[in-house]
Design a protein around this nucleic acid. Sequence first.
RNA 1: GGGGGCGUAGCUCAGUUGGAUAGAGCAACGGUUUUCUAAACCGUAGGUCACAGGUUCGAGCCCUGUCGCCCCUGCCA
Length: 599
Amino acid sequence: MDISFNPIQSIDKAMRLLFKNDAELSQQFTNSFDPIIRAADPKFADFQANGILPLAKKNRLNPVQLANDVCKKLLDSQAIDSSLFEISVAGPGFINFKLKAAYLSRWLENFSSTKAIQQETSQWLNKEVTVIDFPSANTAKQAHIGHLRPMVIGESIARILEFSGASIIRDNHIGDWGTNFGTLIMILKEKGIHVTDFTNPAEALELIDSLYKEGTKLENNNPELRNVSRNELLKLQNGDTENTYIWQSIIDVSNQAFEKLFEQLDVKIDYTLGESFYKDKVSRVYDELSSLEIAEESDGALVVWHNEIKKFAKDNKRPFPFNIRKKDGASNYASTDLATILYRIEHFKAKSVIYLTDSRQQDHFEQLFLTTKKWFQKKDYPLPKLKHVWWGTILGIDNKPIKTKSGESIKLQSLLDEAIERALKVVREKNPELPLDEQNEIAKAVGIGALKYVDLSSNRTQDYVFDWDRMLSFDGNTAPYLLYVIARINSIFRKAELNLSDSSLSNYFEVQSLYEIQLARKLIQFPITLNQTLSDLRPHFLSTYLFDLAGVFNNFYNNEKVIDSNPSIQQRRLSLCHRTHTVLSTGLKLLGITTVERM
RNA sequence: GGGGGCGUAGCUCAGUUGGAUAGAGCAACGGUUUUCUAAACCGUAGGUCACAGGUUCGAGCCCUGUCGCCCCUGCCA
């Protein structure tokens, strides 16, 4: 039997083969058998097969007796190697699989580094070309707390997909072609502000933001101005040189300001193709969907009905069509999103497209995907996998969407600054002797890490309550707690005067004590966690695991002395520290969190 | 009206896709350090899984109904 990266796969395979090859079993149970292998509660075993129970039920057999028979056959046929697994029947008819020290030790030898682990995980997605649509912020507006989740969740998911072998294209689909530009151009001209005066992007964006608010206010008081704005927008859309220049300058400023935030949050972007990029590509969408009779006119607009879905059906009491061209003939985000999918398959050859937005856009994407399927099928275009990854709202302590005291949305930059500032305060308190620049570096990693981790550690489809004290606490499921474990491990290696990259650490060693074995068993769960995280694109599965692992490690750390006079004991415990470091730092990296040497 | 999400310990959240006696952290109480970072660890206490039915060997999870909260629901994205 191989020492496989994911033991569930070996057990599953062994059991299926037994049912296929064993004369008695194959005769008695002619249909294919699903062993249903799951990770077990560690107090019972590492894995358990649940599949015997439904099988016994279906065939009116005693489940415990059947489980015992299967168990015996697994050992007799050597489908399960008894030197690697301890198997037993438990409860109403589960088969428990406990990994023996030999399995644990061999696994830790085979998958000792991030590179070795990635060699396995990178086969999962087979270089599938995947466009990930994030963080897709608005332009001409300052980033606020609402932009945090798309950046944090998007970056993490992109990293997880990449680590799992996808060929990732990060496409920042910005909203750069809205009606707000008419108002902006109007007010800039009205006040005689020249975009050439812009120097600092963040400041310029703040100005633009406030000018927009001023502009809409003026329009409300003076309807004449609304016509002026509308006219400026029309000129922009018709390619007027001056307005195009102003528009482009605003976009540039906006992108530069966001770029600065991406840098601080360690977000990487491959392309920034906004809605304006697709403005000359929407007519093909109208033409094709019209001539295929997928789209039709309704109240002057061009819309798509999906009669198979009640809420999108034409005869629904409250009609809710997919509006792909407004009645004034202008495009909207449905039109550009459709043009974008086409571009992504034709230009990027995308096999999969993943959209990241908040929960409120679920209907839009359901309609978008339905429309795309019908359209691509009729045209024989290759249909990519389409997935909408969405999340809930960040709430304040009052359980309402978080706002400043004056009721405005919190600026993202001030949020980051506050996180770092709060972290710095704690670092100074705990470690005043560290050099100042290192204190600052730690504060940055811990502060930003805490902010990101809190966003990733709860189930993304739920709202969560934002609480500074909790996220920066060093107890509980937080970034500081995890980063501290890494710092402790680094400290041990400094004391042992050994480098974490020392080749002796990747050698075979036999786990022995209770705490060593507990830690090894937890480490081996990493592929299962990662696989689960990937299948649902929910990073909190990974963070929960890392928190558990950190707890098991701390237990080991508190009970077993690593630096030991016996060199073989010290060697194997250092190796376990090294593996923990590998898994923790790999996991945190996949969450987009920067680790520190000391804290 | 329709749709989506949610309801689990005082608080904040998990719960491996239907498995064994429902778990963490915080807060409360008690304990552990001449020893690798105590920013740690261990223990105690805390539950009618909103409520009522149903499906089955087995339900926090699936189905039906009820109650409550949040969000979306034709030309913003």
